[in-house]
């Protein structure tokens, strides 16, 4: 049964991003989609270019933050938004691909820039049904 899913959760000043999936890579992919949804509607992003990122961290939670921060960085310097992601994990080594296009103000109406992913409400865990969940708050 597919469980890939993303959502936002409350934080007073900013916003929480959460992804779920049958596998850990899927949960990481969905968290990235949730993060894009803070900026614009991910479904409105065309897949014109792909960008690859590699991250490494001492544990899965720091790895999630690294992954999101790598995407924030790539979106900032390339002036892009991403809409779809693919993650491969080998322990706490991550290889990711992000597909997207250049920011178009008319098309995307980007609401905010994300400054960084934070350790606030940071959790990466499997629930009792075996579904992976990955979440943190992003600073906007």
């Amino acid at each position: 049964m597919p469980h890939a899913h993303w959502e936002h959760f409350e934080h007073k000043a900013d916003i929480g991003v959460k992804g779920s999936g049958n596998t850990l890579p899927e949960a990481f992919e969905q968290t990235a989609v949730a993060m894009v949804a803070v900026i614009t509607d991910p479904l409105g992003v065309a897949e014109q270019e792909s960008v690859e990122v590699d991250c490494q961290a001492p544990d899965l939670e720091l790895l999630l933050v690294d992954w999101l921060n790598a995407l924030i960085y790539e979106m900032a310097v390339r002036r892009m938004v991403f809409g779809r992601f693919e993650v491969k994990l080998d322990g706490t080594q991550l290889h990711g691909v992000a597909w997207g296009e250049h920011v178009n103000r008319e098309k995307h109406d980007p609401a905010v820039e994300i400054k960084g992913a934070t350790y606030t409400e940071l959790k990466v865990a499997q629930d009792t049904q075996g579904i992976w969940q990955a979440q943190c708050v992003v600073d906007v």
Partner: peptide, 27 residues
């Protein structure tokens, strides 16, 4: 500023235990 904050947050979180600092919250 955002990038400096991001990078040092991670470096400091990893180094804290090396300095014998017990963090009540990783942030």
């Amino acid at each position: 500023g955002h990038q400096i904050g991001t990078e040092f947050l991670k470096n400091m979180a990893i180094a804290a235990s090396k300095h014998g600092i017990v963090l009540p919250d990783r942030e």
